Amino acid sequence: MDKISAMKVYVKVVESTNFTRAAEVLHTSAVYVTRMVQALESDLGVKLLNRTTRRSKPTDAGLRYYERCVALLRDLDEMDADAQASKGSKSGMVRVSMPSLVAKSTVIPELPKFFASNPDIRLDISIADHHPDLIEEGLDCALRVGTVSEPGLVAKTVGHYKTLTYASPEYIRAYGEPFTLDDLGDHIGVSYALKSGRIRSWEFLEGNEVRSVPLKSAILVNDADTYVACGLAGLGLIQGSTFILDAHVRSGRLSKVLRDYPLNPRPVSVVYMPNRTKPRRVDIFIDWLVDLYSTHRAD
């Protein structure tokens, strides 16, 4: 038995929840998949799966073994990719973290073009609205929105997001539209809690000065998607990137308000560890991000 091949088959069975679907993914027969899993269980002397006619669910031991298999196979892929990178290969895996809204609105819609130009590069995208530790998470790089304050990281600015204030038609019908910062005393906003626990303040550019305005709120959230959903539901004013939220403006679900009081454009940066030779594939992906954001500059 080729144990690595057996591990790959077992991982697909767990992820597909049955042998037939795993066989389809692996472009092989269900008989082969069954034999490989049975051989693995025999070699280990442990039952890995509880089987029914429709579903295969890992046992407690099987779940632990699955998690270790995933980690081992990922390490093997990385070893192969690093070996290829040593000769300047443009193939292999790039592990990157980015906020959910950035991924959904900016990066993922453009990825077909990236893969068309770089068919041998694969991406492992980790969605995180906080700032994960690159070393602990095994990341090659990460996209950050806002000022990068962590010491020991190289930050390369790839673009900027213009930030405005938005309200849904339902909100405007209920509260009216604010036109000046003094109007905000009669309005409510959706509050956003940062990972530090601090509530993000409501800031506006008034002339050349940043002005912070207290705003009443009926709801506090700590997730970017939920924050936008609250704004769409009319639960309060929200602030966000024009590139991310203007799609909702075009669909009629949001309107821009307080246009004369924008926020400072927020930088978008790629961060990575210094003094570390990056594989060519990582440089290719970072250069692509620079080109992508060059077409979405703040007005």
Rank of each mutant, 00 (worst) to 15 (best):
M1H: 14
M1Q: 14
D2E: 10
K3R: 14
K3M: 14
I4A: 14
M7G: 05
V11K: 14
V13L: 13
F19G: 03
T20F: 05
V25N: 15
T28L: 06
Y32E: 13
Q38M: 04
Q38F: 03
E41I: 00
L44N: 03
L44P: 01
N50W: 08
R51L: 05
S56I: 01
T59H: 08
G62F: 12
Y66V: 04
A71C: 04
L72W: 02
L73E: 07
A81E: 06
A83D: 10
Q84N: 13
K90M: 09
S91R: 13
M98C: 11
K104T: 07
T106W: 03
T106G: 03
A116T: 01
S117Q: 00
D120M: 08
S126N: 12
L134Y: 08
I135N: 14
L139S: 15
L139K: 11
L143V: 15
R144M: 11
V145E: 09
E150Q: 12
L153K: 15
V154S: 02
V154H: 12
T157K: 13
K162Y: 02
K162A: 13
T165R: 13
T165Y: 10
A167F: 09
Y171G: 08
I188F: 06
G197M: 08
R200C: 12
S201M: 14
E206Q: 09
G207D: 12
L215R: 06
N222V: 08
N222R: 12
A224N: 04
G231T: 02
L232C: 12
G240K: 07
G240T: 01
S241H: 05
T242E: 10
F243G: 06
A247K: 15
V249E: 10
S255F: 03
K256Y: 07
K256L: 09
K256E: 07
L258W: 03
L258Y: 13
R259W: 02
D260S: 14
R266Q: 14
N275Y: 08
K278N: 08
R280W: 03
R280Y: 04
I286Y: 04
W288D: 00
L292I: 01
A298D: 13
A298V: 04
